[in-house]
Design a protein around this nucleic acid. Structure first.
Lengths: 204, 204, 204, 204
DNA sequence: ACGTAAACGAGACGGTACGTCAAGTCTTTCT
DNA sequence: AGAAAGACTTGACGTACCGTCTCGTTTACGT
């Protein structure tokens, strides 16, 4: 049985250096060309210190980005809620679109997604730490809309989020079209129509 | 300047052996553990013959799958068109969902998607050779629906396809939910509602 | 600037395995067909471990033979000195001739000489580590003969060694004649005559 | 049984181009870095044309140098014979020393010697075509000296040549000393002394 | 405050695969 | 049919990293 290291004795100095080095390097050379050796060298750290605390390259990079969000203990990821659902969603989607169109942001996120796609364990961690809370915030806004009668009370919110973000995610990942504010608006419009209750007389 | 090899002299024997070996190996060991050396060995081919004709591992694998579709000169990828759009789309989406849930199929496709996400050049080739024709077939069915008055004549069909497939693609890639026939139906329903024209009095 | 490995951490186990494997292989397949990869495999060692410590194939082989002589810290390479120069030299030359006629010995030595001829750096190392001490022992015997009045006191000993060994070296390298005890004796005789002082009246 | 090519149909154009290219390249990059491919390319010739007519790289290079001497049908390689053996040998040895000290000359010759040392077949060809005739010319001069009473009539001329050239060959190959006119003279002196008959009173 | 056990930096190790190079063979095309 | 052109299989090259495994050297408890 392998001996587990004692987290209490973990060097925070080394941990921070590794995460910072990982973030820098993934930006400089891209995820595919990122190596553990390079991270260790850049961080001034022994390779073993990385292998001791992380199971894979992907885990280090994920942690590197998680660490960014750790600054504020419970950072405000709540969506705007003015009462106008369409307007609020447009604001959010336009911001999202802009964020993913930013070259500095997209490289690492794209790399992370690549890993997540192929590594279920990493995906679970990602969902729990990053995507989960964000999705919860989105669903909170949708629930508010349900209470306001702007969405059907029995709507499947997980499916709803997929309808809203799935098309965008696909376009972004596959680079199959431009990411513009107009596109964001079109997605919101389509989403709201899709969420409307069935109309009497929608013959077959 | 590097000298280009002459495609006219290319050995079809070697080409087929390489593509077959690539297909087999990607199924056996997965894309990540697939190596050029293993392909060459399995194919009974020199490594240089692979490097001569393909720029990357991803290109070989893509070609390996493209070659599968080359059998029929214009294989029938047309969607069913019974006149009942909803029924036809349900058939198609249920089949798609089943296909992507099949473990034998999903491994290589997932691997290919990973590569495409990070390699724009590969993505372009993929779009041109595989996704393009398929999308065209789908749009043909939607145009037929437009002519039948089941979809607005001015609908953006690229966006339409994204609305229909994007949610599914995201759920599949991120494994964020089950891929069931019910899910397929729900996507079709939401899609059709999203495509309906605006209704008078949709006070935002 | 390339980082130098730390010799203090060098694995003596690996070093010995490499030198032994090199010696074996050079005997089995000859120097020309000797490869670093084969040495590494035979020694159960990573290629990098060879590249880390030796600059070239020749250096490994040279070291392999040097290591043989390292057994005794200062092995006795002194030549016999019975007082009878001609008899002593005959013993030495006959032994040398026999040694170089031995097929087991000649292969590696021939290989080493080939390398030395084309690689001045290797030659310098060879001279310093192997040939130098041996030559010094030979010159010691000749100096003893000078003190005994058997050789002129002002004789150029480097030239003398060349006169004695050069003909033999040439015949061995080029395989231009048989290496027999008689030949050894003839060389000694010629050498001694060549070293005699000029005789009065040797009209040019 | 391998089919032999028909020498009658051999292209002299290609042969000359190959030999010239070989000579040029061995001067430019040295023998070790000389490749068949480079010769073929430089000569504007298919690789097979080289493999068809020569068994090895060494054979091509040897032929390349032999071809140089083929210009004159029986080129004058006779040694000077003024009647003064010592003077004649000094002239010859000084010329030899100068020739081998010339950097332009020494590279290819050194390379050729390396090959010859390890390839008995090549050595035989070399001896027959190049060294043989030259040695014969040298022995002719020594025979003339025998007739003139300057050398013992029963002297072993093969051994004699070895005594004269062996030391020089060794010094040149191993770079173990300077190649000067004084050195040439010293060799001639030592050689002549070694060839003198035994003197009465050479105790034991 | 001190001794000790841990985590640490450093980096050598046995390996795998890389992408390149040249060898020698085989095939196609041209003359 | 010989020769050019050049694609082919083979296999060694030297490099880059992998993940594991010592080495001393801090570091920070628990006495």
């Amino acid at each position: 049985m392998a001996k587990q290291p004692n987290p209490a004795r973990r060097s925070q100095r080394s941990r921070q250096a590794i995460l910072t080095a990982a973030r820098e390097l993934v930006s400089e050379v891209g995820y595919a060309k990122l190596t553990i050796e390079a991270i260790a060298t850049r961080a001034g750290v022994g390779k073993q210190t990385i292998y001791r605390w992380w199971p894979s390259k992907g885990a280090v990079v994920l942690d590197a980005f998680l660490a960014l969000s750790e600054s504020g203990p419970d950072q405000d990821m709540a969506l705007p809620d003015t009462g106008d659902l369409k307007a609020d969603l447009r604001v959010v989607m336009r911001a999202t679109v802009a964020e993913f169109a930013d070259p500095a942001f997209e490289g690492p996120i794209r790399a992370l997604n690549t890993e997540i796609i192929n590594d279920p364990a990493l995906a679970a961690q990602y969902r729990e730490k990053l995507a989960g809370p964000v999705d919860e915030a989105k669903k909170a806004r949708l629930r508010s809309a349900q209470r306001a009668g702007q969405l059907p009370p029995d709507a499947d919110l997980d499916l709803a989020l997929e309808l809203l973000y799935g098309p965008f995610y696909q376009r972004w990942l596959l680079r199959s079209g431009p990411l513009t504010p107009q596109y964001a608006d079109a997605l919101v419009d389509a989403f709201l129509k899709a969420m409307r209750p069935d109309i009497g007389g929608s013959a077959h």
